[in-house]
């Protein structure tokens, strides 16, 4: 019988302490987690596209630029066809977004419930979304009076409210 094994146990202990310390250091230290530069760019783009939807939404009704609800209400329900017909009859929405996001490309999808099913229609297609695309969304509520005033194809009942989610996918060129 010899006593070699004792030192091995101590080595094991030492290794355990080292591992525990490493895990502790990593999990407790906030300094190690630094935001990636790319992430910051994404946040910036997401903020801009969210702002673009908010600005469209909050634009006063008497402005020369139609606001988001009016733009969506005028839609004729025909999906866009890339690249021949990128915006359908949503020229007003397209012009507004292009004005607000001059350095980015975007697609717009409209999601709404029809006959208890969620329908997602491609309203504006400016191409396949890039690698770092971000999605922002905004809800608008349509009534029959808004739709008929704007001449859209939504076909709502007099007391019907239609909630439409406007999904804006934006990416840098």
């Amino acid at each position: 019988m010899n006593d070699k094994g004792q030192l091995h146990t101590l080595e094991g202990l030492g290794a355990a302490v080292l591992m525990t310390l490493t895990i502790l250091t990593i999990s407790q230290s906030t300094m190690i987690v630094t935001p990636q530069n790319e992430l910051a760019i994404d946040v910036h783009l997401e903020q801009m596209s969210s702002d673009a939807l908010t600005v469209m939404d909050r634009n006063p009704v008497d402005s020369a630029q139609y606001n988001l609800t009016e733009c969506i209400a005028c839609w004729d329900m025909n999906e866009a066809d890339y690249p021949t017909d990128t915006a359908g009859n949503l020229d007003e929405l397209d012009a507004g977004l292009r004005y607000l996001l001059p350095n980015a490309l975007y697609n717009v999808d409209l999601a709404y419930i029809e006959n208890d099913d969620l329908k997602v229609d491609k309203a504006i297609i400016n191409g396949p979304a890039g690698k770092n695309a971000v999605v922002t969304r905004h809800f608008v509520t349509l009534t029959n009076s808004t739709v008929s005033e704007m001449g859209g194809g939504w076909n709502l009942g007099d007391n019907e409210l239609k909630v439409v989610e406007v999904r804006l996918t934006t990416w840098k060129i």
Binding site: K4, L7, H8, L10, E11, G14, L18, L21
Partner: peptide, 15 residues
Amino acid sequence: QIAVDFLLGISLFLI
């Protein structure tokens, strides 16, 4: 096998 003294020393230092 490493020396116990070294192990003790490095552990203390790391802590």
